[in-house]
């Protein structure tokens, strides 16, 4: 982080000068930090998924029927609809982000910026599609308050959406910094970290989509 390099500027030959930098090579601080953050995020979603499966296993509707999704919402979650488009868009955004990463690794700043911009737009598109999908569900009467099914559905997708939102902000910052020329093949930890996070969000969605719509 910047404070360290600031500290070490005056005397690079000193006994402590090597400490802040990664003298042994290997993973850099921000990336290790991001990996650990993702580990903790995985545990957060694990808690939500545990609640989902527990709720689902215990669910019995008012007539004593054990059916999931409950009969009144049986047709509401059609995987081959708008949501599939959103899924494809999110997966595509991971691909373009990876292309941006490869581009900056070989110092291709134009390719980096182009792919980064694509990713950013795809991320926003996903959010808009999800918002639109929510509005459709609300119209059909599925809300947070409509029983365990609605609660778990909106909690899981909502927290995923919040993470996508956070990711889009992260991408926006990376894009902005990229446009002012802050990244190069030697210095692009922020891009690596943001891409790790975005891929994680993407994987969560794939798991979520599979579980909510197909299982």
């Amino acid at each position: 982080m910047s404070a360290d390099s600031h500290a070490l500027a005056p005397a690079d030959h000193s006994p402590i000068s090597g400490l802040a930098h990664d003298i042994r090579g290997g993973i850099s601080n921000p990336i290790l930090g991001m990996l650990l953050f993702i580990a903790s995020e995985i545990m957060f979603f694990a808690g939500l998924f545990a609640a989902y499966f527990s709720t689902r296993a215990n669910f019995v509707d008012a007539n004593g029927v054990k059916e999931w999704p409950p009969s009144e919402f049986a047709d509401i979650l059609n995987p081959f609809s708008l949501i599939l488009v959103a899924t494809v868009i999110l997966i595509l955004s991971s691909v373009t982000l990876q292309m941006a990463l490869w581009a900056i690794r070989r110092d291709d700043r134009t390719g980096f910026l182009r792919n980064m911009a694509f990713t950013f737009i795809l991320g926003i598109t996903f959010l808009l599609l999800q918002a639109y999908d929510y509005s459709l569900l609300f119209q059909e009467g599925l809300t947070m308050g409509s029983g365990p099914f609605g609660t778990t559905y909106f909690t899981l997708t909502g927290f995923h959406g919040a993470h996508v939102f956070g990711g889009v902000i992260m991408l926006g910052v990376v894009l902005y910094r990229g446009m002012s020329g802050q990244f190069s093949s030697r210095h692009h930890d922020a891009v690596e970290a943001a891409s790790l996070y975005w891929h994680f969000v993407d994987v969560v969605w794939i798991v979520l989509f599979t579980i909510l719509y197909f299982l």
Binding site: T55, N58, F59, G145, G147, P148, G150, T151, T155
Partner: peptide
């Protein structure tokens, strides 16, 4: 706050 049902045993939660 939002009418959730995770932990309410009388609303399908546990």
């Amino acid at each position: 706050n939002y009418g959730g049902r995770f932990f309410d045993p009388f609303g399908g939660g546990s």
